[in-house]
């Protein structure tokens, strides 16, 4: 296992540009690489902007999804490395599971480590999990697993079947309705650094095969969790599946239902009912 510690977060636009240029000619198995940063603290200004865009209350604890923003550049760097078998453009985020052992304080120095694992077979291609682990004071406090689907790709021989489903209840009653404006992708890109072109504008999204720009899955997840602010367990696992893309602009509903000591969630189109996100929140 190769572990590389970076001094700073890699520049995301450059990574995305490199990813686009080096999309062809990839293959093989997952690299055994781990990227890490140590002693990272959240930038208060970025945190405030992130909280506002996702509707989290600004507090002394990081939003549950915020460590993902810290770890994501490392994951992108990993995926854009030539050793990574799948081309980043065209990867679709299909599932994200976050586990937090306790709330993380805003000022805590965090050690981040990311890696890829579980190259798996999916009925329409292959999936790979990008994992992140966040430690504070030497103890792991937060971890996440993002499953990406590469359509048409194939996993190596003997790869396991991918696991992208999350089970939720019927969730018939909408708790809230959101108008998601057409600049929702640009706003989240600005605060998260995820400048994937499919989120930024209709034009750039079309270049990658989407009819319109689509909302970031992690923004939808963040906003759904923000709606449950004050009602989440301290030690918690949040597991969501991203279903149909949420095209911008849209009006969607959030449905919530108490389940298993936590919540079941669904974000759907307000008129057509198309499912964008379903997920579970469970105490751990």
């Amino acid at each position: 296992m190769a572990r590389t510690v970076l001094d700073a977060a890699p520049a995301m636009p450059a990574l995305f540009a490199r990813a686009a240029l080096t999309a062809r000619g990839r293959g093989g198995d997952l690299p055994d690489t781990r990227l890490a940063r140590v002693g990272v603290t959240a930038d208060p200004a970025q945190l405030a902007d992130y909280a506002r865009v996702c509707r989290f209350p600004l507090s002394d604890a990081l939003p549950l999804t915020f460590p993902h923003v810290l770890a994501f550049p490392l994951q992108v760097a990993l995926m854009t490395d030539r050793a990574f078998p799948l081309a980043l453009p065209g990867l679709v985020h299909v599932r994200n599971r976050i586990e937090a052992d306790r709330p993380i304080g805003v000022g805590e120095a965090l050690d981040l480590e990311v890696w890829a694992e579980r190259f798996a077979t999916h009925r329409s291609g292959a999936t790979v999990d990008l994992c992140a682990s966040v430690s504070a004071g030497g103890a792991e406090v937060w971890r996440s697993r993002s499953t990406y689907l590469a359509r048409g790709a194939s996993a190596p021989e003997g790869a396991p079947a991918s696991d992208v489903d999350v089970e939720v209840g019927a969730l018939e009653r909408p708790a809230a309705q959101w108008r998601v404006p057409d600049d929702a992708g640009r706003r989240y890109a600005k605060v998260s650094g995820d400048v994937n072109p499919i989120h930024l504008s209709g034009l750039t999204a079309k270049a990658f095969g989407f009819k319109r720009a689509i909302a970031h899955g992690m923004w939808v997840k963040a906003r759904a969790l923000a709606a449950l602010s004050g009602r989440l367990p301290d030690a918690v696992a949040v597991d969501v599946a991203f279903r149909k893309p949420l095209f911008l602009p849209s009006t969607v509903t959030l449905s919530t239902e108490e389940a298993g000591g936590g919540w079941d969630l669904a974000v759907r189109n307000a008129t057509a009912g198309t499912e964008h996100l379903i997920g579970t929140v469970r105490p751990t």
Binding site: P174, A176, Q177, W178, A227
Partner: peptide, 13 residues
């Protein structure tokens, strides 16, 4: 603010 629904929409539910 929390639901984005007009009061009338709530009442309709």
């Amino acid at each position: 603010p929390r639901t984005g629904l007009a009061m009338g929409d709530h009442a309709a539910i």
